[in-house]
Design a protein around this nucleic acid. Structure first.
Lengths: 237, 237
DNA sequence: CTTGACCTTGCCCCAAGGGCAGGGTTCGAC
DNA sequence: GTCGAACCCTGCCCTTGGGGCAAGGTCAAG
């Protein structure tokens, strides 16, 4: 005939939890002694550990109550299902650990793997951090707008990046962000850009790298560049 | 400029959750369009995925809020702590899977390993299921009363069980449970019991196997045996 | 011009207990 | 015999992370 505190210690739970299980009908209320204290038997201890095992596996208490007086077959199949769920949750936590590791380092976390790879390529190329953020945000927007298109476009863009001429052009555009809109190099850059696309990719839908609409959407404070605006006008006209 | 629904899809959360994060101050409220709809930027998407990663790792939202604008060093050390916690929880879930597997089969779950081993010994000996339950409940009570004593006693009892004479005596006591209190075999059993303890273990504290006080505590409806009561009287007198 | 899919705020609801108030009990020490 | 510490009792409100639903406004397509 043990008290609630001893039972709680034995099962590794709080007194409050035991009373909670009584309220929920999971654990039978024991007899009381002369002064109204609950007096438990070993039966209760057995039941309580059973409850804790199921609850510890994440089974809702209402379901635990049902399982406690289910027939052995139903219990066995329920345990199989619970175990499967447990395995899934372990896998999920492992995945979360992976995400967490990435949260340390960069922004791979926030984008699809193909976009992350593309950003890595750009970083290796020596592209500015501002431009990387711009690209990252642009792809996020694109993916919310149209995941399938985004997949196709990113593949195409990674292909383009394999060509030395395009790489040079990309870096020039990156550098041009900070130029004055009157910079004398701008018309030449526009010409080279147009020439390259005409020579290499007239058949594709690919637009010049810095799609202003997307850039503007991506990041209000940073994305405005007078030089880029002029460049866009030069390319259009 | 994406809507709340699109953002929710991108991040794999519900609209309700996003609004919840606004209320909690985790995610900045975006600007509204002409009709009062929230309009999000890629910034928000990045922040939201960050929030989900931390929340998915079990970090309380209040703590997530603090981490979001903590300096990189603080964030890094927090991530280390979170990762450690995650590892612990994976280990814990694995342990739970083990417990669950035992819940399928027997009563090993509810008792300490040494007691489980003792019960296995008894089962191998051919002891009745009733007696096994009685032993199990008795040890549970003993352990709540005094874990250290229980450890010592169980070791002693396993030692006794290695001796053939004791094993025979134990089985006889088990069988006697159902006898009539007038059964002519009882006095003989009492004599043999006393003789065996006198010969083998006069120095130890060990009492005859069926300590009536414990047996009565262990299980009210089953533990009452007129034959055992008589046996106890014979052993005392 | 309507229909369905979207968005808004506001309210209450859930699980699984935790915390605290305000009281009674028991046990060992002095 | 009485004091304090450590228990126990009930009852009530609080928390976390949202879910559900109501009652309405909006938007895009047919």
């Amino acid at each position: 005939m043990i008290t609630i505190g001893r039972l709680a210690d034995y099962a590794g739970v709080t007194i409050k939890a035991i009373r909670h299980y009584h309220e929920r009908g999971l654990l039978a209320e024991p007899d009381r002694d002369a002064s109204g204290y609950r007096r438990y038997t070993a039966r209760h201890a057995v039941d309580l550990v059973k409850i804790r095992t199921l609850a510890g596996a994440g089974v809702p208490l209402a379901r635990v109550r049902d399982l406690l007086d289910a027939d052995p077959d139903a219990l066995a199949s329920a345990i199989t299902a619970i175990d499967r769920d447990l395995r899934d949750r372990i896998a999920e936590l492992r995945r979360t650990r992976g995400h967490l590791a990435q949260l340390r380092g960069g922004d791979q976390l926030f984008v699809a793997p193909d976009v992350a790879a593309f950003l890595d390529d750009l970083r290796a190329l020596g592209v500015s951090e501002r431009q990387l953020r711009l690209e990252r945000d642009g792809w996020i927007l694109m993916r919310t707008a149209s995941p399938a298109d985004a997949d196709a476009w990113i593949a195409e863009k990674r292909g383009l990046l394999a060509e030395p001429g395009f790489r040079a052009l990309y870096l020039d555009h990156d550098a041009a962000f900070d130029w004055s809109p009157d910079d004398p190099r701008l018309p030449g850059l526009a010409d080279r850009t147009r020439a390259w696309f005409a020579a290499h990719h007239s058949a594709t839908e690919t637009r010049p790298v810095h799609n202003p609409a997307i850039a503007r959407l991506a990041a209000q404070p940073e994305a405005s560049s007078p030089a880029w605006d002029r460049l866009a006008r030069l390319l259009r006209g």
